Measured scan of single mutants.
Amino acid sequence: KKVIATKVLGTVKWFNVRNGYGFINRNDTKEDVFVHQTAIKKNNPRKYLRSVGDGETVEFDVVEGEKGAEAANVTGPGGVPVQGSKYAADR
């Protein structure tokens, strides 16, 4: 997939743990970017499923997906693991 931007910061608008996807609002352009659970590179080690939490600040790359921009290599700011959704089960 073609990389559009790297190391972008954004805020998770919403993320559905059961369906495994959601949207991140970019801090720079204010665009909403699709995020799939497979794009989460550093999950919270205490969580079973990969997820990001609503309102969480994340860092990610933006790539060209089939339906427009989507997030890739999602981590917390500075490459730390994401916090994850409060609806995702703990280990």
Rank of each mutant, 00 (worst) to 15 (best):
E66F: 14
V63G: 01
R46Q: 15
D61N: 09
K13T: 07
E64H: 13
P81V: 09
T38L: 09
F34C: 02
G79L: 05
N19G: 10
F60H: 01
N73L: 04
K47C: 07
G65E: 05
K41N: 10
R26S: 03
V74R: 00
Y21V: 03
G53L: 09
V80P: 04
A69N: 14
S51L: 06
K1W: 03
N19W: 09
K42I: 13
Q37H: 08
K7M: 08
Q83V: 09
V8T: 07
N44M: 07
I40F: 06
R50I: 11
F60R: 00
T75V: 11
G76F: 11
A5I: 15
N16L: 02
H36F: 05
L9K: 15
T29I: 09
E59V: 11
A88V: 12
N73A: 09
S51A: 06
E70S: 14
V3D: 07
A39V: 07
N44Y: 06
Y21T: 03
A89H: 15
L9W: 09
R91F: 13
V63S: 03
F60C: 04
P81E: 14
V33Y: 03
T38H: 13
T75S: 10
K67D: 06
A69K: 15
V12F: 04
K67P: 05
K42M: 14
Y87V: 07
K86L: 10
S51T: 11
I4Y: 08
V17A: 09
A5N: 15
I4E: 06
I24D: 01
G55V: 02
K1C: 04
F23Q: 02
V35E: 00
P45S: 13
T57I: 14
R46K: 12
N25M: 12
V17Q: 06
L49I: 06
W14T: 03
E64Q: 15
V35I: 15
G84A: 05
V62W: 00
K41T: 14
Y21E: 03
E56D: 06
V33T: 05
T38Y: 07
G20I: 02
T11F: 08
K86S: 12
F15E: 02
F23D: 01
K1G: 05
G10N: 01
F60T: 01
K41Y: 14
Y87H: 13
V63L: 13
L9G: 08
V35G: 00
S85P: 05
N25F: 10
K67W: 05
